[in-house]
Amino acid sequence: MPPNARTGTGVGAGRPRKPILAGAAVAGAALIAIPLLLTGTARDDGPPDSAKGLAAGGSDTVLNPTSAPAALDDYVAEKPSPSPKKAKATKSAPSKVAPPQPAAPATKSSPSGKTDSKPEAKPKPKPKTSPKPNWSTETVYAPSVLEVNQAWTTNRIRMVMQTDGNLVVYNEQRKPIWASMTFGPNHRAIFQPDGNLVIHNGEDRPIWASQTWGHEGAQLVLRADAKVVIVQNGGVIWST
């Protein structure tokens, strides 16, 4: 067939068709691309040096390559704390009502405004009464005589003729409660049968008398009330 002969479709028989050319171009491109892809995968183990510098300089989340490795404890997760449970409502015990306290006594306020906190004075206890002594009595019958330094006595009083001539009555405290006021040596007191009490001096002369003559049978009594009396039939006719 001649070079310029045309087929029935009007295309020359000596020239390749367009689809065939296109397929050949694609196959050539594939043959070129496969080695390039293989070389690219061999360098995918890490980013390029420029990328490493960029990441280390501008990112805050990238660790410093010179820093120490993290310890295991830094990554231990904390156990979640249990959520607080609602406290169960507890029944409150019935409160005890305290008995009413007695009111405190009111304190008196002083003119300066300060309260007087002194407690009220308690009444003093009454002193115990001592038992009354059992005083005795003494009865003198006539005739009876008291010489110097002699006496009629009870457990409470005594009537004594002193050396100075004075007839004196002393009580239980040895205090004089009566005296005849007759002074001189060698006096004596005589309770006569007529009921008269008479004091004689050293010359045997009467110098003092109770003026109770005429009462024969009278008695001289030293009583428990510290009195010296002359009585007749229960009646007092003379007393100190």
Results as ranks from 00 to 15, higher is better:
Ala87Tyr: 11
Lys108Arg: 08
Asn166Met: 07
Pro102Arg: 03
Arg188Asp: 01
Ala30Gln: 11
Pro19Thr: 09
Gly202Leu: 09
Pro3Asn: 14
Gln150Ile: 00
Pro119Arg: 07
Val229Trp: 07
Ser59Tyr: 12
Ala27Tyr: 08
Thr163Tyr: 14
Leu38Arg: 14
Pro176Arg: 09
Leu167Ser: 00
Gly12Ala: 15
Ala103Asp: 04
Thr61Arg: 15
Gly184Met: 07
Trp208Ile: 01
Asn196His: 01
Val140Ile: 15
Ala24Phe: 10
Gly214Val: 00
Pro82Asn: 13
Lys126Pro: 03
Ser136Asp: 13
Arg43Ala: 14
Ala22Leu: 10
Ala106Trp: 01
Gly214Leu: 02
Gly58Phe: 15
Gly234Asn: 05
Thr9Leu: 15
Thr163Ile: 07
Ala218Val: 00
Thr39Pro: 03
Thr212Ala: 05
Gly234Met: 04
Asn4Gly: 08
Leu167Thr: 02
Thr137Asn: 09
Gln232Trp: 06
Ala89Gly: 07
Glu120Asn: 06
Ile32Phe: 13
Glu172Tyr: 15
Asp164Thr: 02
Arg17Lys: 13
Thr154Gly: 05
Pro48Ile: 04
Lys114Thr: 09
Ala226Pro: 01
Gly234Ile: 01
Ala98Met: 09
Gly23Arg: 12
Val168Arg: 06
Tyr75Leu: 12
Phe191Thr: 00
Val236Met: 11
Ala189Thr: 01
Gly195Cys: 02
Ala179His: 03
Trp152Ile: 00
Tyr170Val: 01
Ile177Met: 07
Ser92Trp: 05
Pro193Asp: 07
Val160Phe: 08
Gln211Phe: 08
Lys118Gln: 08
Val145Met: 12
Lys126His: 05
Lys18Asp: 11
Ala22Thr: 10
Pro69Thr: 10
Phe183Leu: 09
Thr153Tyr: 11
Gly12His: 13
Tyr141Val: 03
Gln150His: 11
Gln219Met: 12
Gly195Arg: 01
Thr240Arg: 02
Asp204Val: 09
Thr115Asn: 15
Ala13Val: 13
Glu147Val: 01
Ala224Trp: 14
Pro35Trp: 04
Gly46Asp: 10
Lys126Glu: 13
Gly234Leu: 03
Val169Gln: 05
Lys175Trp: 05
Glu138Met: 13
Ile199Ala: 02
Tyr170Leu: 09
Ala55Arg: 02
Gly184Asn: 02
